[in-house]
Protein backbone atom coordinates (compact mmCIF):
# COMPACT_ATOMS: atom_id res chain seq x y z
CA UNK A 1 0.00 0.00 0.00
CA UNK A 2 1.71 3.10 -1.21
CA UNK A 3 -0.67 5.86 -0.28
CA UNK A 4 -0.37 6.87 3.34
CA UNK A 5 -3.26 9.31 3.30
CA UNK A 6 -6.32 8.40 1.31
CA UNK A 7 -9.27 10.77 1.16
CA UNK A 8 -12.43 10.27 -0.88
CA UNK A 9 -15.32 12.66 -1.26
CA UNK A 10 -14.77 14.35 2.09
CA UNK A 11 -17.64 16.67 3.08
CA UNK A 12 -17.87 18.92 6.11
CA UNK A 13 -20.38 21.65 6.80
CA UNK A 14 -20.58 24.12 9.66
CA UNK A 15 -24.19 25.29 9.86
CA UNK A 16 -24.96 26.74 6.45
CA UNK A 17 -21.29 27.04 5.46
CA UNK A 18 -19.81 24.24 3.40
CA UNK A 19 -16.16 23.92 4.39
CA UNK A 20 -15.43 20.79 2.35
CA UNK A 21 -17.54 19.97 -0.69
CA UNK A 22 -16.16 16.57 -1.66
CA UNK A 23 -12.37 16.56 -1.37
CA UNK A 24 -10.27 13.72 -2.82
CA UNK A 25 -6.57 13.42 -2.22
CA UNK A 26 -3.78 10.92 -1.63
CA UNK A 27 -0.32 11.27 -0.15
CA UNK A 28 2.57 8.99 -1.05
CA UNK A 29 4.82 7.52 1.62
CA UNK A 30 7.71 9.81 2.44
CA UNK A 31 6.45 12.62 0.24
CA UNK A 32 5.49 16.16 1.16
CA UNK A 33 1.94 16.86 0.04
CA UNK A 34 1.19 20.55 -0.15
CA UNK A 35 -2.39 21.66 0.39
CA UNK A 36 -2.57 25.04 -1.18
CA UNK A 37 -5.33 27.57 -1.08
CA UNK A 38 -6.45 30.90 0.34
CA UNK A 39 -8.07 31.34 3.76
CA UNK A 40 -11.41 29.59 3.95
CA UNK A 41 -10.64 27.14 1.16
CA UNK A 42 -10.87 24.15 3.51
CA UNK A 43 -7.21 23.41 4.23
CA UNK A 44 -7.45 23.52 8.01
CA UNK A 45 -10.73 21.60 8.02
CA UNK A 46 -9.09 18.84 5.96
CA UNK A 47 -6.17 18.63 8.39
CA UNK A 48 -8.49 18.58 11.41
CA UNK A 49 -10.51 15.72 9.94
CA UNK A 50 -7.36 13.75 9.12
CA UNK A 51 -5.91 14.38 12.59
CA UNK A 52 -9.18 13.01 14.09
CA UNK A 53 -10.13 16.36 15.63
CA UNK A 54 -13.24 16.78 13.52
CA UNK A 55 -15.81 14.26 12.29
CA UNK A 56 -16.58 14.58 8.60
CA UNK A 57 -20.20 14.75 7.45
CA UNK A 58 -19.53 12.61 4.40
CA UNK A 59 -16.85 10.75 2.52
CA UNK A 60 -14.01 8.58 3.75
CA UNK A 61 -10.56 9.32 5.07
CA UNK A 62 -7.83 6.80 5.84
CA UNK A 63 -4.49 7.52 7.42
CA UNK A 64 -1.97 4.65 7.31
CA UNK A 65 -4.84 2.36 6.45
CA UNK A 66 -6.96 3.34 9.44
CA UNK A 67 -10.33 5.03 9.12
CA UNK A 68 -10.14 8.35 10.97
CA UNK A 69 -13.74 8.07 12.21
CA UNK A 70 -13.84 4.37 13.11
CA UNK A 71 -10.31 3.99 14.49
CA UNK A 72 -9.19 7.38 15.79
CA UNK A 73 -6.90 5.89 18.46
CA UNK A 74 -4.94 3.88 15.88
CA UNK A 75 -4.49 7.04 13.80
CA UNK A 76 -3.50 9.20 16.77
CA UNK A 77 -0.69 6.91 17.85
CA UNK A 78 1.07 7.34 14.51
CA UNK A 79 0.59 11.00 13.60
CA UNK A 80 1.99 14.32 14.71
CA UNK A 81 0.14 17.61 14.46
CA UNK A 82 1.41 21.15 14.44
CA UNK A 83 -1.52 23.49 14.26
CA UNK A 84 -1.81 27.01 12.99
CA UNK A 85 -0.97 28.51 16.36
CA UNK A 86 1.91 27.20 18.40
CA UNK A 87 0.17 24.81 20.79
CA UNK A 88 2.73 24.92 23.57
CA UNK A 89 2.20 25.86 27.19
CA UNK A 90 3.56 29.33 27.85
CA UNK A 91 3.92 28.75 31.56
CA UNK A 92 6.10 25.66 31.16
CA UNK A 93 9.72 25.50 30.04
CA UNK A 94 10.66 24.11 26.64
CA UNK A 95 11.84 20.85 28.18
CA UNK A 96 8.71 20.51 30.33
CA UNK A 97 6.52 20.97 27.27
CA UNK A 98 8.26 18.11 25.51
CA UNK A 99 8.28 15.98 28.67
CA UNK A 100 4.54 16.49 28.99
CA UNK A 101 3.89 15.14 25.50
CA UNK A 102 6.42 12.32 25.96
CA UNK A 103 4.75 11.21 29.20
CA UNK A 104 1.32 11.37 27.57
CA UNK A 105 2.72 9.08 24.89
CA UNK A 106 3.68 6.65 27.68
CA UNK A 107 7.42 6.88 27.16
CA UNK A 108 9.21 5.75 30.32
CA UNK A 109 10.59 8.71 32.25
CA UNK A 110 14.21 8.17 31.31
CA UNK A 111 13.46 7.65 27.61
CA UNK A 112 11.19 10.69 27.68
CA UNK A 113 14.00 12.80 29.08
CA UNK A 114 16.46 11.55 26.49
CA UNK A 115 14.04 12.09 23.62
CA UNK A 116 13.20 15.63 24.82
CA UNK A 117 16.87 16.54 25.15
CA UNK A 118 17.56 15.19 21.70
CA UNK A 119 14.80 17.22 20.07
CA UNK A 120 15.73 20.33 22.04
CA UNK A 121 19.23 20.06 20.65
CA UNK A 122 18.09 19.25 17.16
CA UNK A 123 15.85 22.30 17.03
CA UNK A 124 18.51 24.63 18.37
CA UNK A 125 16.73 25.32 21.66
CA UNK A 126 19.43 24.09 24.03
CA UNK A 127 20.10 27.47 25.61
CA UNK A 128 16.40 28.21 26.08
CA UNK A 129 15.43 24.70 27.21
CA UNK A 130 14.83 25.53 30.86
CA UNK A 131 13.30 28.94 30.20
CA UNK A 132 9.56 29.46 30.20
CA UNK A 133 8.06 29.47 26.71
CA UNK A 134 6.55 32.89 27.47
CA UNK A 135 10.04 34.35 26.89
CA UNK A 136 10.47 32.61 23.51
CA UNK A 137 10.39 34.37 20.15
CA UNK A 138 7.77 33.37 17.57
CA UNK A 139 10.32 31.30 15.69
CA UNK A 140 11.41 29.45 18.84
CA UNK A 141 7.80 28.63 19.70
CA UNK A 142 7.20 27.20 16.25
CA UNK A 143 10.33 25.10 16.53
CA UNK A 144 9.29 23.82 19.94
CA UNK A 145 5.81 23.13 18.59
CA UNK A 146 7.28 21.14 15.73
CA UNK A 147 9.56 19.29 18.17
CA UNK A 148 6.54 18.43 20.33
CA UNK A 149 4.76 16.87 17.38
CA UNK A 150 7.81 14.69 16.67
CA UNK A 151 8.23 13.15 20.14
CA UNK A 152 6.34 9.99 19.28
CA UNK A 153 8.24 9.55 15.98
CA UNK A 154 5.12 9.96 13.86
CA UNK A 155 4.93 8.35 10.45
CA UNK A 156 2.63 11.09 9.24
CA UNK A 157 3.07 14.73 10.16
CA UNK A 158 0.39 17.36 9.68
CA UNK A 159 1.63 20.92 9.48
CA UNK A 160 -1.09 23.53 9.30
CA UNK A 161 0.45 26.74 7.99
CA UNK A 162 3.70 26.11 9.83
CA UNK A 163 5.35 29.37 8.81
CA UNK A 164 2.48 31.85 8.98
CA UNK A 165 3.71 34.95 10.77
CA UNK A 166 7.38 33.95 10.74
CA UNK A 167 10.13 36.15 9.35
CA UNK A 168 12.13 34.79 6.38
CA UNK A 169 15.01 33.49 8.50
CA UNK A 170 12.78 31.46 10.80
CA UNK A 171 10.70 30.35 7.84
CA UNK A 172 13.81 28.93 6.21
CA UNK A 173 14.63 27.06 9.40
CA UNK A 174 11.22 25.42 9.43
CA UNK A 175 11.57 24.54 5.75
CA UNK A 176 14.92 22.93 6.47
CA UNK A 177 13.37 20.82 9.21
CA UNK A 178 10.52 19.73 6.96
CA UNK A 179 12.98 18.66 4.24
CA UNK A 180 15.01 16.72 6.80
CA UNK A 181 11.91 14.89 8.03
CA UNK A 182 10.75 14.03 4.54
CA UNK A 183 14.26 12.75 3.83
CA UNK A 184 13.87 10.37 6.77
CA UNK A 185 10.71 8.91 5.30
CA UNK A 186 8.08 10.86 7.26
CA UNK A 187 5.02 11.63 5.17
CA UNK A 188 4.20 15.31 5.54
CA UNK A 189 0.91 17.01 4.77
CA UNK A 190 1.52 20.71 4.78
CA UNK A 191 -1.04 23.45 4.28
CA UNK A 192 0.02 26.83 3.13
CA UNK A 193 -1.30 29.93 1.53
CA UNK A 194 2.19 30.88 0.43
CA UNK A 195 2.67 29.77 -3.12
CA UNK A 196 6.41 30.00 -2.73
CA UNK A 197 6.34 27.65 0.24
CA UNK A 198 4.39 25.02 -1.68
CA UNK A 199 6.82 25.39 -4.56
CA UNK A 200 9.81 25.02 -2.22
CA UNK A 201 8.64 22.06 -0.16
CA UNK A 202 5.93 20.04 -1.81
CA UNK A 203 6.51 16.97 -3.96
CA UNK A 204 2.83 16.89 -4.80
CA UNK A 205 0.28 19.65 -4.68
CA UNK A 206 -3.44 19.81 -4.17
CA UNK A 207 -5.00 23.18 -4.83
CA UNK A 208 -8.17 23.88 -2.86
CA UNK A 209 -10.71 26.58 -3.53
CA UNK A 210 -13.96 26.90 -1.57
CA UNK A 211 -13.85 23.34 -0.29
CA UNK A 212 -13.08 21.74 -3.65
CA UNK A 213 -9.94 20.38 -5.25
CA UNK A 214 -9.38 22.45 -8.35
CA UNK A 215 -6.05 20.96 -9.35
CA UNK A 216 -3.59 18.27 -8.29
CA UNK A 217 -0.15 17.18 -9.42
CA UNK A 218 3.50 18.03 -8.97
CA UNK A 219 4.35 21.74 -8.88
CA UNK A 220 6.18 21.39 -12.19
CA UNK A 221 3.30 19.61 -13.91
CA UNK A 222 0.81 22.15 -12.66
CA UNK A 223 2.93 24.98 -13.94
CA UNK A 224 3.54 23.53 -17.40
CA UNK A 225 0.03 22.16 -17.88
CA UNK A 226 -1.80 25.19 -16.76
CA UNK A 227 0.37 28.16 -17.25
CA UNK A 228 2.80 27.35 -20.01
CA UNK A 229 6.06 29.20 -20.40
CA UNK A 230 6.34 32.93 -20.20
CA UNK A 231 8.75 35.37 -21.67
CA UNK A 232 10.16 37.84 -19.22
CA UNK A 233 11.99 41.02 -20.24
CA UNK A 234 13.21 43.86 -18.06
CA UNK A 235 14.89 46.82 -19.76
CA UNK A 236 17.95 48.27 -18.07
CA UNK A 237 16.50 51.78 -18.27
CA UNK A 238 12.92 52.36 -17.29
CA UNK A 239 12.66 54.94 -20.02
CA UNK A 240 12.93 52.15 -22.58
CA UNK A 241 9.95 50.25 -21.15
CA UNK A 242 7.40 51.54 -23.66
CA UNK A 243 9.67 50.79 -26.61
CA UNK A 244 10.43 47.27 -25.35
CA UNK A 245 6.75 46.59 -24.69
CA UNK A 246 5.82 47.64 -28.21
CA UNK A 247 8.58 45.44 -29.65
CA UNK A 248 7.49 42.36 -27.68
CA UNK A 249 3.82 42.96 -28.50
CA UNK A 250 4.64 42.61 -32.20
CA UNK A 251 6.05 39.11 -31.65
CA UNK A 252 3.54 37.60 -29.17
CA UNK A 253 -0.18 36.90 -29.64
CA UNK A 254 -1.27 38.40 -26.29
CA UNK A 255 -0.28 41.82 -25.04
CA UNK A 256 2.59 41.76 -22.52
CA UNK A 257 1.80 42.53 -18.88
CA UNK A 258 3.98 45.12 -17.19
CA UNK A 259 4.77 44.41 -13.53
CA UNK A 260 5.75 46.67 -10.67
CA UNK A 261 9.48 46.02 -11.00
CA UNK A 262 9.56 47.56 -14.47
CA UNK A 263 9.64 44.22 -16.28
CA UNK A 264 7.10 42.65 -18.57
CA UNK A 265 5.87 39.12 -19.20
CA UNK A 266 4.08 37.59 -22.13
CA UNK A 267 3.03 34.04 -22.96
CA UNK A 268 5.72 32.32 -24.98
CA UNK A 269 3.86 30.08 -27.38
CA UNK A 270 6.12 29.61 -30.40
CA UNK A 271 9.59 28.13 -30.18
CA UNK A 272 12.45 30.44 -31.01
CA UNK A 273 10.69 33.44 -29.55
CA UNK A 274 13.54 34.17 -27.17
CA UNK A 275 16.05 34.39 -30.04
CA UNK A 276 13.88 36.65 -32.13
CA UNK A 277 13.16 38.99 -29.26
CA UNK A 278 16.88 39.12 -28.48
CA UNK A 279 17.74 39.89 -32.11
CA UNK A 280 15.09 42.60 -32.40
CA UNK A 281 16.22 44.23 -29.16
CA UNK A 282 19.78 44.28 -30.50
CA UNK A 283 18.66 45.86 -33.76
CA UNK A 284 16.73 48.51 -31.89
CA UNK A 285 19.71 49.18 -29.62
CA UNK A 286 17.72 48.51 -26.44
CA UNK A 287 19.70 47.18 -23.47
CA UNK A 288 17.95 44.74 -21.12
CA UNK A 289 18.76 43.75 -17.55
CA UNK A 290 16.83 40.46 -17.82
CA UNK A 291 15.67 38.37 -20.73
CA UNK A 292 14.48 34.81 -20.41
CA UNK A 293 11.78 32.18 -20.36
CA UNK A 294 10.12 31.32 -17.04
CA UNK A 295 7.65 28.83 -15.70
CA UNK A 296 4.69 30.72 -14.29
CA UNK A 297 4.62 31.26 -10.55
CA UNK A 298 2.03 29.38 -8.52
CA UNK A 299 0.26 32.71 -8.17
CA UNK A 300 -0.25 32.67 -11.92
CA UNK A 301 -1.49 29.09 -11.60
CA UNK A 302 -4.07 30.07 -9.04
CA UNK A 303 -5.26 32.94 -11.19
CA UNK A 304 -5.62 30.67 -14.20
CA UNK A 305 -7.42 27.94 -12.26
CA UNK A 306 -9.95 30.00 -10.39
CA UNK A 307 -10.24 33.14 -12.44
CA UNK A 308 -9.46 35.11 -9.32
CA UNK A 309 -6.27 35.63 -7.40
CA UNK A 310 -5.61 34.14 -3.98
CA UNK A 311 -6.08 37.52 -2.32
CA UNK A 312 -9.49 38.06 -3.95
CA UNK A 313 -10.72 34.73 -2.70
CA UNK A 314 -9.62 35.67 0.77
CA UNK A 315 -11.53 38.94 0.63
CA UNK A 316 -14.65 37.13 -0.58
CA UNK A 317 -14.43 34.64 2.27
CA UNK A 318 -14.05 37.38 4.81
CA UNK A 319 -17.04 39.22 3.39
CA UNK A 320 -19.06 36.04 3.57
CA UNK A 321 -18.03 35.56 7.19
CA UNK A 322 -18.87 39.15 8.15
Amino acid sequence: MNSVIDVEGLVKTFGSTTALAGVDLTARRGAVLGLLGPNGSGKTTTVRVLATLLRPDGGRAHVLGHDVVAEPAAVRSRIGLTGQYAAVDEALSGTDNLMLIARLLDLPRRTARRRSAELIEQFGLTEAASRRVRTYSGGMRRRLDLAASLIGRPEVLFLDEPTTGLDPRHRNEVWEQVRTLAGEGVTVLLTTQYLEEADQLADDLVVLDRGRVIAAGTPATLKTEIGGQRLHVRPLHRADLAAVTALVAELTPDAPIVDATGGLTAPAVEPGLLHRVGARLDEAGLTVAELGLRLPSLDDVFLTLTGHSAEDAEATTEEAAA
Binding site: A73, S77, D106, L107, P108, T111, L119, G124, R153, T180
Partner: peptide, 26 residues
Protein backbone atom coordinates in the same frame (compact mmCIF):
# COMPACT_ATOMS: atom_id res chain seq x y z
CA UNK B 1 24.17 29.75 18.67
CA UNK B 2 24.97 30.22 15.00
CA UNK B 3 22.95 29.32 11.96
CA UNK B 4 25.75 27.07 10.78
CA UNK B 5 25.69 24.92 13.89
CA UNK B 6 21.93 24.67 13.73
CA UNK B 7 22.01 23.51 10.14
CA UNK B 8 24.55 20.94 11.17
CA UNK B 9 22.33 19.58 13.90
CA UNK B 10 19.29 19.74 11.66
CA UNK B 11 20.48 16.96 9.43
CA UNK B 12 20.68 14.47 12.27
CA UNK B 13 17.86 11.96 11.98
CA UNK B 14 14.85 12.57 14.21
CA UNK B 15 14.47 8.91 14.90
CA UNK B 16 17.94 8.39 16.31
CA UNK B 17 17.06 7.60 19.93
CA UNK B 18 17.60 3.89 20.24
CA UNK B 19 15.03 1.99 22.17
CA UNK B 20 12.21 4.54 22.10
CA UNK B 21 9.32 2.12 22.22
CA UNK B 22 6.24 2.70 20.18
CA UNK B 23 3.55 4.29 22.36
CA UNK B 24 1.55 1.74 24.30
CA UNK B 25 -2.21 1.88 23.94
CA UNK B 26 -5.35 0.11 24.82
Amino acid sequence: MTTASRTETAIRPVTSTPGVPAPVHG
